[in-house]
Design a protein around this nucleic acid. Structure first.
Lengths: 283, 283
DNA sequence: GGGCACCGATACCGTGCGGGTATCGATCAG
DNA sequence: CTGATCGATACCCGCACGGTATCGGTGCCC
């Protein structure tokens, strides 16, 4: 199978419309029809149920859509990583680390300091992004390592090492009645009048339906809480970022959060290995 | 990047010889040279250092070799899984489960029984293989699920759920002096006269250097121990397979072994999900 | 040191495949 | 019944891929 065929099929499978898919691919519709037919013949499998009015995925087609997307991602990642490795000075920014904006900043600072002191350390570029995008960055070859937080972030297809676990606290507007309590339970926080839990975007960038404000990062969230428009349950370490308008109360029965360092399973580069070793050896 | 280019490059990078690589690919050498040049131009990166006598990988070339192999594997897996999904009766053998020969047989039997009793269960084909091949089976799309044993087996790039942990025992020839002890430590087993630890093949199928007999599966190993030519440290559950000539003694400081069920991160098929759910719910 | 063998690069040529335009046939809306 | 829509088919063109012949550089060996 050629990546061209895969790209064509994925386009059609996503659009469920040969014309639009062809437009998206920048080719005419007839060659696209033929390419799909040829792919089906080579695979010996019908991928699409098509009448002259509608296109639907077959069982095999659904499999190829998912698997093909993953395969295309792997090819693109290979290309990007090769390009990066070829940049002058043995790879430009050396390492790219991606983490959630405003999360684990203390840990990250310690890690970067400790790694920089290692012999043979290379420059590390830090990318901050929303919670849902980190895995993508790694899988697409845009980044070499990530700091993730289980159980929130998916570690599917990644190598990980645990760096530490912490409890969670409820973040509330200062002065809220609950801030007087020494500790809370999750049940105390559901359905608080006027303080809904926020909604985070899913892996596809869309927000789940329901009440609660839409947020993209922690800074937005904290601002909303300070304004008295939301509350949240966050890892303890976020306390370092709380200012006067916010208060934190431990939530006893919230799941423990584990910070892990993650990297794609193939990248066996010395720099990644060193960084991971440094991270696991942090005090 | 097209898979054709990737295949060409991987062949050359593995052979480090254009002529042999071309022969392996079934094409002539000049088109291969041109294809590599074109790939290098498109990537804007030198992949190979070549004099007229020798070919060597550049930094970027090493990256592309590793990443490209992974990408090709992903493409092949997509193709195989699609073919499987298109077989008559909604996918032929339904599910393919791969596990080490002679390992966790009791757990496997319970799992298969419990799953078969589920509503909507599909036929499960069981493949037994050597310890190093399981990951490959999953990644290449030949199998849907595997039973792995941490920390021995690599779970790189796979989703896993823990099924249970167990201690390890030393497996010794019956009558050996150590079998009289109630328990052992790892130190008791290093350098036992005439009873070396066996060597297992690595992921590439080759054996590490050193003393000790080469074994491919547990049955071979047990036979060697019964003959008084080796000893081994194995998970407790292997006791069920020991016959009169063999004895097991707990090893207190051996690492705990965790049996996990593993599957490739994309396959979100109902059958795999059901099987995993059944497995984690086992008594 | 010169002839030789080896190996990758270059030059040149044919053809098959990927892509384009025009059109058909089926299906649904009104 | 008619027009609109959409995928399939027919046909043609250009190029990129593969093949053969050959060159140029390099290490080896007598």
């Amino acid at each position: 199978m050629e990546t061209r065929e895969l790209r064509y099929f994925v386009a059609v499978a996503e659009e469920l419309h040969f014309g639009r898919a062809a437009q998206r691919l920048g080719i005419a519709q007839p060659p696209l029809s033929r390419a799909i037919q040829q792919l089906e013949r080579r695979l010996g499998a019908a991928l699409l149920d098509r009448t002259s009015r509608t296109v639907r995925l077959t069982e095999a087609g659904s499999v190829l859509l998912v698997e093909g997307r993953a395969a295309l991602e792997a090819v693109d990642a290979a290309e990007r990583r090769t390009r990066r490795a070829a940049l002058p000075a043995t790879g430009g920014p050396g390492l790219v680390l991606v983490t959630k904006a405003n999360a684990s900043s203390a840990l990250l600072a310690r890690l970067l300091d400790a790694y920089a002191a290692e012999p043979g350390a290379v420059p590390v570029e830090v990318i901050l992004c929303g919670p849902a995008e980190q895995g993508r960055f790694l899988r697409e070859g845009r980044a070499d390592v990530a700091l993730l937080h289980r159980p929130f972030d998916s570690t599917a297809g990644l190598h990980t090492e645990e760096l530490g676990t912490e409890g969670q606290v409820a973040v509330l507007p200062a002065g809220h009645p609950l801030t007087l309590r020494a500790h809370l339970h999750l049940a105390d926080l559901t359905g608080l009048p006027g303080l809904p839990l926020p909604r985070w975007p899913g892996p596809d960038g869309s927000y789940p339906p329901g009440p609660g404000p839409q947020v993209r990062d922690h800074a937005q969230l904290l601002q909303l809480i300070a304004l008295g428009r939301a509350c949240a349950v966050s890892p303890e370490s976020c306390r370092a970022q709380l200012h006067g308008d916010l208060a934190a109360v431990p939530v006893l029965d919230a799941p423990k959060v584990t910070t892990v360092i993650a990297w794609p399973p193939h990248s066996r580069s010395r720099a990644v290995a060193d960084l991971v070793r440094t991270a696991t050896g942090l005090p």
